[in-house]
Simulated assay, not measured.
Amino acid sequence: MYSSYKAQSLAMKNLKTLLISANVGSLFDDPENLFKKWLNQFYQVVRDKDPDFIALHCQEVGGKNFAQSMPNVKKWIQDLLASPDLKSYDRVRIFLDEDFKTAETFTALGSLYFVHSRVADIRIWDFASSDFVNVKDTKVYDGSIESVGEKDKQKFPLELFPNRTWSRKGYMRTRWQVGGSALT
């Protein structure tokens, strides 16, 4: 038991993790001028840090004018996934709350996770089945993601807002396991 625990702790201790939180609203409202600049900065950080695991948490996915700018998100994701700088990240999970027509649940949040090929054993928690599942591929969940079990997303209730007007405020979370140790 001790040697197993020690090996698990070692896996987590040696996991180079890059955590990024970004307000990306402006990107989608002006993609011609901002996509390339933003992506190049992101890729430079990835090259400099050479992480094993990247968690990119975004707010205002689709922009401030999301009804008009939401189609730009697809191009941004395509550019990310096609980048030579992310070629070694062979397991990806992307969760994009894009269903702006459903005010009760829309948060405009996005969570993107990239796992480097040198990471041997990684799993994600499935909140629906209450179990960790292996991550072996790339999956992009977009549009309405309410039924996706690999994330927990909640919009803060209307009662929390003094003017009783809907806000996109909320949270999205995932839980990961690397070499038997949890990363939440």
Rank of each mutant, 00 (worst) to 15 (best):
Y171V: 06
L18H: 06
G149E: 08
G170C: 10
D79H: 09
D142M: 02
L96Q: 03
V45T: 12
M172H: 07
D50R: 13
F35P: 01
K75H: 06
S3L: 08
K139C: 07
F127Y: 15
Q154Y: 09
L96D: 00
F53H: 07
R175E: 15
V73A: 01
W176M: 12
K13C: 03
F53E: 06
V73H: 00
M12N: 09
I94C: 04
Y89N: 02
K155W: 04
N14G: 04
V133H: 13
R173M: 12
N72F: 05
V135R: 02
F28M: 01
D137L: 11
K101Y: 10
E146K: 15
E146M: 11
L10E: 15
A82C: 03
A108D: 05
S111I: 03
D30Y: 05
L18F: 09
D97Q: 07
W166I: 06
V61W: 01
N65M: 10
S21E: 00
V178S: 01
K139D: 10
S117C: 11
D29N: 11
E32I: 04
T165L: 07
S3N: 09
P31R: 04
R123K: 15
A7G: 01
F53D: 04
K169H: 05
M172W: 03
K49E: 14
D142L: 01
M70G: 00
P162I: 11
Y113T: 14
V119R: 04
F161T: 09
G170D: 07
A82V: 00
K16A: 15
M172P: 03
S21C: 00
K49S: 13
D137I: 10
T102H: 12
L109F: 08
D85G: 08
N14P: 00
K13Y: 02
R173K: 15
T184I: 14
F28K: 03
D50C: 11
C58Y: 00
F95D: 04
P162N: 12
S4R: 13
K49Q: 14
G180K: 06
A182L: 08
N163M: 09
C58E: 02
T174G: 15
K155Q: 08
D99Q: 12
D126N: 15
R47H: 11
S88Q: 09
E150I: 13
P162S: 14
S111E: 05
K64M: 10
K151E: 08
V133A: 14
F132R: 14
K151W: 07
S111C: 00
L27T: 07
V135E: 11
I77Q: 03
